[in-house]
């Protein structure tokens, strides 16, 4: 009797579609069709940025920020974001960061990967000759010989020790590592946060900048071997020696770009270490 039941149960399992519960809505459905762990309905809610309007910060609509004169001085080349920071994403990212739902790292990193691929296509195209891109362009032009754009190293915005202790994981690191694994790119910690600042999300632009001034430094335990590795990357790409090294900086949300700019300026100091120009590209999950 019970054996019959077991056999029937097994048969039914074989025949019925494999359903799992969706990470967001919890309904049992076929998940992972477009994004891992998410059902179709929830995946359709993702407000992807397909065509960035602002070539610098990747915003999907007009961007007054990047027209400010000081924006030109920002240390990173450009930013691309996977999705708009709308109510849906706000909720999901909060679940991910504060709600201990690390499962979200999977779909998020897929979104980042897709954005990275788009970024690659976009940056592998020749650049327009004018506009705010003049400065990166000069470097870029020389590099166009090696046909495609690729990041050389993936790193992320660090958390302070207190925040890390409280949260248990660095949301950007988790995304960065998954992304690096998918793209088979080297990844590692380059930055450290020296000051425990309050949450950026409660601050105005001026406060954010003041707040973050000097909040980051190079990671204290950077290995000398590490620089060798960079050398070899540079040599492989361009034996003549002026080839820039491109760092992809991962974060969860880009609001004013202050964090990315401050981190990028710290990363720029690496230039002295391995005597090559360093270009920082920012890739974030959401763009507000």
């Amino acid at each position: 009797m019970s054996r019959d039941k077991k056999i029937f149960a097994a048969l039914r399992r074989l025949l019925s579609p494999r359903l799992e519960s969706c990470l967001v809505c919890g309904r049992s459905a076929r998940v992972g069709a477009s994004l891992p762990l998410l059902c179709e309905y929830c995946a359709a809610k993702v407000p992807r940025i397909v065509e960035p309007r602002c070539p610098i910060c990747g915003r999907a609509h007009g961007c007054p920020d990047c027209l400010r004169p000081e924006a030109l001085l920002r240390a990173f080349v450009l930013n691309r974001s996977a999705v708009l920071y709308d109510t849906v994403m706000r909720e999901w990212i909060a679940e991910y960061k504060y709600g201990a739902r690390e499962g979200f790292a999977e779909p998020f990193s897929i979104l980042l990967e897709q954005t990275y691929q788009r970024m690659r296509r976009e940056l592998s195209k020749p650049f327009p000759q004018s506009g705010p891109f003049a400065s990166p362009l000069s470097v870029f032009d020389s590099s166009r010989r090696s046909s495609v754009w690729n990041a050389d190293w993936i790193t992320w915005v660090p958390l302070s020790a207190e925040r890390l202790e409280e949260r248990g994981f660095n949301q950007a690191e988790r995304l960065g590592r998954l992304l690096a694994g998918r793209l088979r790119l080297p990844a590692g910690e380059l930055l450290a946060r020296t000051v425990h600042t309050g949450k950026q999300s409660f601050k105005t632009r001026a406060e954010r900048l003041r707040n973050l001034e000097g909040a980051f430094c190079l990671a204290p335990n950077l290995d000398p071997r590490f620089f060798k590795q960079w050398d070899s990357i540079g040599n492989r790409k361009d034996p003549q020696g002026s080839f820039p090294i491109r760092i992809l900086l991962i974060d969860d949300i880009y609001t004013t770009g202050t964090t990315a700019a401050v981190c990028a300026s710290v990363l720029k100091t690496l230039e002295t270490g391995f005597k090559r120009p360093v270009l920082v590209y920012s890739l974030t999950l959401a763009r507000s």
């Binding site: 709600g99 201990a100 739902r101 499962g103 890390l164 202790e165 949260r167 248990g168 994981f169």
Partner: peptide
């Protein structure tokens, strides 16, 4: 999973009761 708060590679977080605060091994 890995946890930055305790350093263990097998620090579990409970997803079921997360609405009432983060319950984890450490």
């Amino acid at each position: 999973g890995p946890c930055a708060a305790c350093g263990s590679a097998d620090c579990a977080r409970c997803e079921a009761c997360r609405a009432l605060g983060r319950s984890r091994s450490c």
